[in-house]
């Protein structure tokens, strides 16, 4: 076959491939791009209380800078993110180590350990709402049985964020543990054999070998949880709706209320795009970190 004929055949094959994959590409682009572009467009619109729409330019974004509720929501979002992520990574690694070393643990016990994250967040929220009810819930009953003072849990402006972080960590720590467990199982046994020969203590083995080798896996788990934690919504919506006062009013909850309760879709879109940018920023930062700790 001549070069020209071969090139023509290759071109035809490329065209065929493009034609065959076009519907899937168009569908995917439409499903992803359209909502994003539409939201960007909405962010430049203003809606009156009666739903009347007009072009607002950057007004929604300049409003955002002077909006006390936005900055408060951002602070709450970051506080919840840091606290929950720290709890989930620490306890997730611990749970993974327990599951990894407890070879004789029956399958059903392992399944029970990891079952919370399979529960729908709405169910988890409702369940914890009942348990933490200061008057009727089991949590205060248990505290008082041990002679400890009762807590207002979700009704206390001081304790609401730690309580929500605990609920989320109860649900998602097993998920982190599963990812870390996968990482543990893939670590090279030869390194541990060498450490054993050198007489390294279990703590030193963990500190000097396991943890550094696991870091890329832990960062991956952190990326996956970060995306969810920065968009935290369901459990707060079920348990506190952003209260008491504004004590748990994350950016996502605030944006939802602005859009769907006060019908200001334009400003809500600007809020949500800002949150999206923050999520992207966090993912990029973690990705760089993952690159730095790769081995």
């Amino acid at each position: 076959m001549s070069d020209t004929a071969a090139t023509l055949t290759q071109d035809r094959q490329k065209l065929e491939m493009a034609a065959l994959s076009a519907p899937a590409v168009v569908f995917t682009v439409a499903m992803i791009a359209f909502p994003v572009v539409y939201t960007i467009w909405l962010g430049f619109q203003t809606f009156s209380s009666t739903g009347k729409q007009s072009f607002a330019g950057l007004a929604n974004y300049s409003k955002l800078i002077s909006d006390v509720e936005f900055w408060h929501g951002l602070w709450i979002t970051i506080a919840l993110f840091v606290l929950s992520l720290a709890l989930q990574l620490v306890f997730g690694v611990w749970l993974a180590l327990v599951l990894f070393h407890a070879k004789r643990l029956p399958g059903i016990v392992r399944s029970l350990f990891i079952s919370p994250f399979m529960m729908p967040p709405v169910v988890a929220g409702m369940m914890w709402l009942v348990i933490l009810d200061p008057s009727l819930g089991a949590a205060n009953y248990i505290l008082q049985s041990f002679g400890l003072p009762p807590s207002d849990w979700l009704a206390s402006p001081t304790w609401v964020i730690p309580t929500v972080a605990l609920i989320d960590s109860w649900q998602w720590t097993p998920y982190v543990a599963l990812i870390v467990l996968g990482g543990l199982q893939s670590l090279p046994p030869s390194v541990y054999e060498a450490a054993q020969i050198d007489g390294a203590s279990p703590f030193k083995t963990f500190h000097r070998i396991t943890l550094p080798l696991l870091l890329p896996t832990i960062v991956t788990a952190a990326i996956l949880r970060s995306v969810d934690l920065l968009r935290f919504f369901d459990i707060i919506y079920i348990t506190t709706q952003g209260g008491p006062g504004n004590a748990s009013n994350t950016l996502n909850i605030y944006g939802f209320r602005v859009g769907f309760e006060f019908f200001n879709i334009g400003y809500a879109s600007a809020l949500m795009l800002t949150l999206t940018a923050i999520v992207f920023g966090a993912v990029l930062a973690f990705n760089r970190l993952r690159g730095a700790v790769a081995w």
Binding site: P134, L154, A155, S156, T240
Partner: peptide, 21 residues
């Protein structure tokens, strides 16, 4: 009011009253 009353709406109020508390 009960502790945590700032999270009380109709569900919690009805449950508290119905339970005799």
């Amino acid at each position: 009011g009960p502790p945590g009353v700032v999270n009380y709406s109709f569900q919690q109020i009805s449950a508290l009253y119905r339970s005799g508390r």
